[in-house]
Nucleic acid binder design. Structure first.
Lengths: 242, 242
DNA sequence: CGCTGCATTGATGAGTGTCAAAATTGGTGG
DNA sequence: CCACCAATTTTGACACTCATCAATGCAGCG
């Protein structure tokens, strides 16, 4: 049973700019269905010219880029509300793959409608571009992490980012958040080895700053963590929902 | 003397999607002037809420992100035709700084007109989003470079990228291109130390693959370089001009 | 002509990667 | 409920890439 856009659970959340009833109705015209996928399912493949675009309604995943030698780079973590397939929609080809890490429900749009969508409602086109700019901003910060931050700085930074992203979505309770990711995912995101990532996480736990085990991340001292990570805590920005 | 858009030298180049006379006229309305800057000039500052956006008409620069400890990450190299200020235009704040490395001429737009621009001409809005998606794609590849590629792979990758970008703009002659960057810029782009970057460039020269000295980069063996870099040579894609 | 910035080279060591194995967890079927 | 297996986490030992430090060379320039 497909949820109608007007009942979309995400549109109620503080994390997002609330869509007006008019806009919701407009979105409904482009929604062609919902897709439920199991953990581990590839949603979009790298290099694919996907006919469908998605918005994550629930669940989490990763964006990852594969290299010819078999190694892979995790580009970003996918949270509810994330738009999936921007590159397919515009460039006709995905630069990275997207894979589910939990069960996910996805809102499905037809790529063939993308241009109509873009043309007929400039506010929504603007929102898509806003998301693209936000992603560019985030990837720039990630680049600085891989290039300039040490292992402990990088791991601290990642824990903060994931925690705050989850917090803005109401996924944090008692300073803890459930994460479906493995240490391998984080290692691949930071360009560190799995072993070293593990040992670095151990240091954060020893210092009582953050502990991540049994799929649950607990942040004990966000301020100190931010100092280590050479970053600043900022209030979340409301993002548009596509 | 400000060049009129209809005489824009970039719009003639193969690298770009040719704008129709109508579109050129439309762009002219938003162009508020031209700016000429000297090497080393900051064009946009990180964190700034810039009132003006730019397109690079000529010259080259870098995008860089500064961290609290004084280190910096070069995010990308700026070539003629690049749009500068997307994040300022949409997010109201630049996530990185932009700095000239040669003399540059910039086409200037008012940020206050950005929304009008976006709303009144969906094709151009689409083009901006296309550029954003392309940048996202590139940054993803850069992330994979910093995270997964070794020093020699990363340096090879960078030389290829710069060379091909320049080639598409007609800046390559006899397999050589003049570059205004320093080895420090490349080191900061790859998260390597200056010394190690230098030694790695030396290896490429020893192997007769690429030599870069006296501001001139010469590529002797693009195929082997691409193999080392774990990448594939692809024909350039025409990009829109803003 | 002595700056100053950049490129180059050698010596040394720290931070991370690699290898290997054990411990732990979670799932599955008997 | 236990036995077994696969995936993941954890730990220790060792190797190596790359960072750091330091000095020299070289070119442009006021």
């Amino acid at each position: 049973m497909t949820t109608q856009c007007k009942y979309c659970p995400l549109n109620r959340k503080d994390a997002f700019v609330r869509l007006s009833p008019d806009e919701v109705e407009f979105m409904q015209k482009f929604k062609v269905g919902e897709l439920a996928v199991e953990p581990g399912t590839p949603i979009l493949m790298q290099g694919s010219n996907a006919p469908q675009l998605f918005t994550a309604l629930s669940g989490m995943g990763i964006r990852e880029r594969h290299l010819k030698d078999g190694s892979k780079q995790v580009i970003n973590f996918v949270f509810p509300g994330d738009f999936i397939g921007l590159q397919a929609g515009l460039l006709g080809e995905m630069g990275h793959a997207v894979e589910a890490r939990t069960q996910m429900r996805l809102c499905v749009f037809n790529r063939s409608e993308f241009w109509n969508f873009f043309k007929s409602h400039p506010e929504r086109a603007y929102d898509i571009t806003w998301l693209a700019a936000m992603e560019e901003n985030f990837l720039g910060e990630s680049l600085a992490t891989l290039g300039q931050r040490s292992a402990i700085q990088a791991v601290s930074w990642t824990m903060i980012k994931i925690f705050q992203r989850g917090d803005s979505l109401g996924m944090v309770h008692n300073n803890t958040i459930e994460l479906p990711y493995t240490q391998r995912d984080v290692a691949d995101a930071l360009g560190l080895s799995l072993v070293h990532t593990n040992k670095t996480l151990g240091k954060l736990k020893d210092r009582q700053l953050a502990s991540w085990s049994d799929r649950v991340l607990q942040i004990n001292n966000l301020e100190t963590l931010a100092e280590i990570a050479l970053t600043e805590i900022r209030p979340p920005v409301k993002r548009p929902l596509i």
